[in-house]
């Protein structure tokens, strides 16, 4: 299914280097914070969601990631908002639909559209705040130092490192196959046939040195112990531990309150 909401903008990290307060927070705190924000967003009315959106956006700008925020928000939310409005504000028949000459409009539909839009915006902004202020390497060190198994850490670190080399290889393969007569610009049939000719060498090549990679990892006693000691783990301040615990306890309480009311 769709794992990309909009066009890919390259394989560089979304991380924006900086030294803001948020940058310096422990990655785990930020992760728990993100989960709490995401869950809370679902519990709030649109006004509350808008507050979350505005707050996270503000923090993002303060952290120096304003540009990345704006770019991603426009790319994702732009077409999204348009389609939402057309579908819910205009097309779907609701009981308060006002019929103009050739177009109809439903205020209730527009309200629904706004609610969805604000919620997605809040979630997106919260996620952006996390990814722009947290370098994956730091996240991994934080996870490692809290006992996350090395296997999981590897599964996040390794792909991030391999993205750029694989992209480069894909381009080299495209060149090599074109130089052998592969047509990328022809009929859709030709293009569908060209697709495996570009993908299969990439995968085959990648898998052919799998044994070697695995041996190297094992040779480094990669999983000799269930968890690793991290030498330069991200700082974990006492208040952050408490904050995390507080948020994690707050969540089921919030759900309880919501269900009760």
């Amino acid at each position: 299914m769709i794992t990309q909401g909009s066009s890919q903008t390259g394989t560089a990290l979304l991380y924006v280097p900086g030294n803001s307060f948020i940058h310096r927070m422990n990655p785990l705190t930020k992760l728990v914070g993100l989960l709490w924000l995401a869950a809370t967003t679902f519990m709030l009315p649109p006004g509350g969601m808008a507050v979350i959106f505005a707050a996270t956006f503000l923090f993002g700008v303060l952290a120096g990631a304003g540009k990345a925020f704006i770019k991603r928000l426009i790319l994702t939310l732009g077409p999204f908002a348009i389609f939402l409005f057309v579908i819910h504000g205009v097309l779907i028949e609701r009981h308060d639909t006002i019929q103009h000459e050739w177009i109809s409009f439903s205020p209730e539909g527009a309200q629904y559209m706004l609610k969805i839009l604000v919620r997605v915006a809040a979630l997106l902004a919260a996620s952006m705040l996390f990814v722009t202020t947290t370098h994956p390497a730091n996240l991994l060190k934080a996870l490692d130092s809290h006992g996350v198994p090395p296997g999981i850490a590897y599964l996040i670190a390794s792909p991030l490192l391999l993205l750029e080399p694989f992209s480069a290889r894909a381009r080299a393969i495209r060149d090599a196959q074109q130089a052998r007569g592969l047509d990328l610009t022809g009929s859709w049939k030709a293009r569908v046939k060209a697709f495996p000719a570009l993908l299969i060498p990439l995968v085959t090549l990648a898998l052919s040195d799998l044994d070697h990679r695995a041996t190297v990892l094992d040779g480094r006693a990669f999983r000799a112990r269930p968890f690793r000691v991290v030498l330069d783990a991200p700082v974990d301040r006492p208040y952050e531990c408490w904050l995390r615990r507080a948020l994690l306890i707050a969540l089921p309480l919030q759900i309880g309150v919501l269900l009760w009311l």
């Binding site: 990309q4 792909p159 992209s167």
Partner: peptide, 30 residues
């Protein structure tokens, strides 16, 4: 370990394949 390496490679493939789909102008993400 071998399975882990396979999974790591597969994750990258999942992401890079989108680029390839653009080169052949395929409207599918695969």
């Amino acid at each position: 370990t071998r399975t882990l390496v396979l999974m790591a490679i597969a994750i990258v493939i999942n992401i890079v394949v989108g680029q390839i789909a653009v080169w052949v102008k395929l409207p599918l993400y695969v």
